[in-house]
């Protein structure tokens, strides 16, 4: 069952082709909830990637040991451990980020992206391959969260990473920092990505070039 792709493809696939948010629509809860500012998106992406990497490391190492029947229970305990580690880390060293992300850090434990990668990949592949896969997926996740955060922060607050870039003439679109703004922006981003990936257009591109 183990993957036969080249190591490079294993790493790259999560960033665009199998991007957890854009292609698989996984982990939408944090994607929609915390991306009202680029900083929050980045912090959430990094925390999720940390959990993903460490759980993949542990699960791929233990994969031959864990009996099939209790694997989900085992995975969840491992994931929850690292989520708690990340949560405590933020609370101890970055209290302001921890305060602004609120309950969403503990909620990483139910992010389907993480359990999904363990079930689909780390439990069937070696440590190195699993780490590459997780790193790619994590970077893809961070990428989407930061892009969403940047768009929503510019339109919703007139700033980017906390620095005001639009002058007084700009009236922030309040909707962008509210949940509907998250749905709208994500929907438009996915539509654009699908349009770009559209096989008929890809053929057109090849024909032209």
């Amino acid at each position: 069952m183990s993957s036969t792709l080249s190591l490079k493809t294993e790493f790259i696939k999560g960033i665009w082709k199998e991007n957890p948010v854009m292609a698989s629509l996984l982990g939408l809860c944090p994607t929609l909830a915390v991306t009202n500012a680029a900083n929050n998106g980045l912090a959430m992406g990094l925390a999720t990637t940390f959990v993903l990497l460490s759980s993949s490391l542990m699960i791929s190492a233990l994969r031959n040991l864990i009996p099939h029947q209790v694997r989900i229970a085992g995975y969840i305990v491992i994931i929850a451990t690292f989520v708690t580690v990340a949560d405590r880390f933020l609370a101890a060293y970055f209290p302001s980020i921890s305060a602004s992300l609120g309950p969403y850090i503990p909620l990483i434990v139910v992010n389907c992206l993480i359990l999904g990668r363990q079930e689909a990949f780390s439990s069937r592949n070696g440590i190195g391959r699993s780490l590459l896969d997780s790193l790619g997926m994590g970077i893809g996740f961070i990428f989407v969260l930061v892009v969403l955060g940047i768009i929503r922060e510019i339109l919703g607050s007139g700033s980017i990473f906390g620095f005001a870039i639009l002058g007084d003439w700009f009236t922030p679109w309040m909707v962008m920092i509210l949940p509907p703004g998250a749905f709208l922006t994500l929907g438009i981003l996915i539509a654009l990505a699908n349009w770009y990936n559209d096989p008929s257009r890809a053929k057109e591109r090849r024909a032209v070039s």
């Binding site: 009236t171 679109w173 309040m174 909707v175 962008m176 509210l178 509907p180 703004g181």
Partner: peptide
């Protein structure tokens, strides 16, 4: 509705 949510 979009305007109402954007510029309450």
């Amino acid at each position: 509705a979009f305007l109402q949510a954007s510029f309450p």
